[in-house]
Design a binder for these strands. Structure first.
Lengths: 169, 169
DNA sequence: AATTTTAGTCAGGGGGACCTGATTAAAACG
DNA sequence: CGTTTTAATCAGGTCCCCCTGACTAAAATT
């Protein structure tokens, strides 16, 4: 019989973390235009490319379950920021290959590699505990995505799930 | 000497959690328009009101560091959704008092009270560990907000920090 | 009572994340 | 070779989160 109070406490702390983290992020970046990478819009494109560079826009659109028009728009925004480059495929003139620039690679790897300050006060034991618990939680969430997405009708979620998982192995 | 690998592992798991959580949220709410409350826009208003109901728009704007026009816009959107109500103050005809409707109270309390499925597979020990670690992390984040916001020049962050903290006590 | 301050509305705007439909050029198919 | 399919662009649109400036009415101040 799970202790509902403990679950509620943990849930409350997660909510608090989400809000405070968001607020701290805003405060830290107020004077710079660079927000933390979100799994949304341009962030999706960057994250996908940092895992598998050199995709066509159509590939990106399919993998991320976006329309080709949205994909093109986000890609063009990233081109403007010099985070990605576009070049025609040599094998199929219809295709445009999108790659991360050096700056784009740097940005994506920095975002995924940097250690948030708020983790620096934790002991090694706490870090191990946190990692183990989050691993469990993330697996539970993967299971949720699985259950809500029958593979036949929703290829996207399965693809993203696998991509996300591969990333952290 | 903190173990950088452990910190990096934990940070990676947090990033993964953010993305997978976001994806699971999208999948779960695809067929309903209700997204999880975000500490942003309308979500800010709802969360502030669920803590201190019956504020004027000016109060809300000040507390949340929004312009009065933005505040009015978000309030009107929430009125449309029947989540908040507006009424003129009896003591000052310039002021409009904003309150949560029953539906709004329900929505806000449901969001903050519901226990996410992904927590149900954790043992009591793990829940205690998670709560303790998140408490530490959140306090670190509060300290970050403090350090980045000298009280004189940025009242907002101090106010929000206190509000967020009060919420979970 | 005239002036200044306050609270909120209205109008217009920027930027982002997304979409649909029409169109063009390249590749595949019959 | 004609037709169909594919990849991307262009145009237009919705919704959200934010802003500034102008304006009106109510309250406070002088």
């Amino acid at each position: 019989m799970p202790d509902l109070t403990k679950q509620r406490n943990a849930a409350g702390k997660l909510i608090e973390f989400d809000m405070v983290h968001h607020t701290a992020d805003e405060v830290a970046h107020r004077n710079h235009a660079d927000k933390t990478l979100r799994f949304q819009g341009q962030g999706k494109i960057l994250l996908a490319l940092s895992q598998a560079d050199g995709l066509s826009q159509k590939d990106l659109a399919t993998r991320l379950n976006l329309s080709v028009q949205s994909t093109a728009e986000f890609v063009n925004k990233l081109v403007k920021k010099d985070l990605v480059s576009k070049e025609k495929s040599t094998t199929d003139r219809r295709k445009t290959i999108i790659r991360l620039t050096n700056l784009g690679q740097q940005t994506a790897s920095t975002e995924t590699a940097k250690i948030p300050k708020f983790l620096t006060g934790l002991s090694d034991t706490e870090l191990d505990q946190l990692t183990a618990i989050l691993t469990k939680i993330n697996n539970n969430l993967y299971a949720e995505i699985d259950a809500a997405s029958p593979t036949e009708t929703n290829k996207f979620e399965a693809v993203v799930k696998d991509r996300l998982r591969d990333w952290f192995l």
